[in-house]
């Protein structure tokens, strides 16, 4: 029941995620990939693994710091929401993600506690 909005997002991402996303990355921003290998659609990982322009579905938020976790939930990072990595600071941290129609900046370390499934 919580995954009511999952279908919409994953459908859109299939098939053309990698190619299109990569095309948009031409230029200096290609360097903004935190990992050597770009995660493919349907792959699972953490929000900190995404490159600029990638979209993902949030699977869960876990953090020992309850105040921080609640804050992330309050800001809309809940199960089933689609997030997109929009920008990164010059040194790759913090990361600016787009969700629910607005942009939120978080440190990479905190993004590691957010489980995702890649959409595109």
């Amino acid at each position: 029941m919580n995954n009511k909005f999952q279908g919409k997002g994953s459908g859109r991402g299939q098939g053309r995620g990698f190619g299109r996303g990569f095309g948009r990355q031409v230029g200096l921003e290609t360097a903004y990939c935190p990992r050597k290998r770009r995660l493919c659609p349907k792959e699972e990982g953490h929000l900190s693994d995404l490159c600029i322009g990638q979209k993902a579905l949030v699977k869960g938020v876990h953090n020992d710091n309850l105040a921080l976790r609640r804050r992330l939930l309050d800001m809309g990072i809940t199960k089933g929401v689609v997030v997109e990595v929009k920008k990164m600071a010059p040194m790759g941290d913090p990361v600016d993600i787009k969700l629910r129609g607005y942009e939120l900046c978080l440190r990479k370390r905190d993004l590691r506690n957010i489980d995702i499934e890649v959409l595109e």
Binding site: N2, F5, G60, L73, T78, K79, G80, R100
Partner: peptide, 20 residues
């Protein structure tokens, strides 16, 4: 039942309602 604690569950359902 939901395999998640209630604080998170309530936040999830609140947002689900808003999206609907």
């Amino acid at each position: 039942n939901y395999e998640v604690d209630l604080e998170q569950l309530i936040a999830n359902q609140r947002y689900n309602y808003i999206v609907s």
